[in-house]
Design a protein around this nucleic acid. Structure first.
Ligand code: MN
Ligand code: MN
Ligand code: ZN
Ligand code: ZN
Lengths: 138, 138
DNA sequence: ACTTAAATGAAAAAGCTTCTCATTCTTATT
DNA sequence: AATAAGAATGAGAAGCTTTTTCATTTAAGT
């Protein structure tokens, strides 16, 4: 039930917010651009403006419901926050995105921040490469 | 002598390219937005268009003279390629950028790519945090 | 139901980057 | 040193993603 999530986040339960949350939760994909979400809304018959999609995704991010990524694609990518931090490996040919988590790297990042005198707030590691499928096509 | 670098990169020796290379090499800073470079050119009395700055930086990147970064700032950041790969730690308050290199993390990234079936082409690790100076101001 | 503040949609605007095209400059050749 | 051919430049237009504006609609507490 999405209404609870929204209320917990201090957000009014509106149709656009419910529908967007629904798409983020139930689609096969896990990583969406704002445009992706907008198109999926249209496909499902909802007339929700692109500006609202951006607004709502930004609010979801602020509320911790969603994480925003900055791949080298020129646009933001959003993903439901399932509480499991992970990093990304992106295919430069087809755009496929895989996820990974490495305890050792996480620890080292903390050490590095500390040594540099920083109080770490966030971090992200992007590996770019050619996925198995795309290697075959070359 | 910048002319040699340019010729080696297969680029004609033009005034904009020489001046931009000069700025990248001799400024105290190491990380520049296109706008940064443009302003430094104006300050030094050169009338070079912003479009040319973008064009030249992109050519430098293609030639391997320069590396382009995508911090969470909404604009590209360029840096002379000195042959020493490193990653970045960025202050979310003041924009300060520090650099680091960790052999172990580098190795682990290779292992992860391999395990995921990817042929790695590039990678970048950004740590975001509050630098020592900015912590004092809070 | 009523009221009030918040949310939405459409369009405009912003911010960064690329493109277009007439003009200028580099470089190789006389 | 002059010439010719093609590449590079500058100014502005245009492109793309994202944000803002503002009139209208909607949610939620009374
Ligand atoms: Mn993910
Ligand atoms: Mn650097
Ligand atoms: Zn691929
Ligand atoms: Zn700082």
């Amino acid at each position: 039930m999405e209404s609870k999530d929204l209320r917990n986040a201090g957000l009014k339960v509106t149709l656009p917010r419910v529908k967007i949350l629904e798409i983020l939760e139930t689609s096969k994909a896990r990583h969406f651009s704002a445009e992706d979400v907008y198109k999926l809304l249209l496909e499902s018959g909802e007339e929700i403006g692109l500006a609202t999609v951006y607004r709502v995704l930004t609010q979801f991010e602020a509320a911790g419901l969603v994480t925003r990524h900055h791949f080298d694609t020129g646009h933001s990518v959003f993903e439901m926050n399932l509480g499991n931090h992970h990093d990304h490996i992106v295919c430069v040919k087809c755009g496929r995105v895989d996820e990974f988590f490495d305890e050792t790297i996480e620890k080292l990042q903390h050490d590095i921040s500390e040594k540099a005198g920083y109080k770490m707030t966030d971090h992200c590691l992007y590996i770019y490469g050619v996925c198995e499928e795309c290697q075959k096509l070359e």
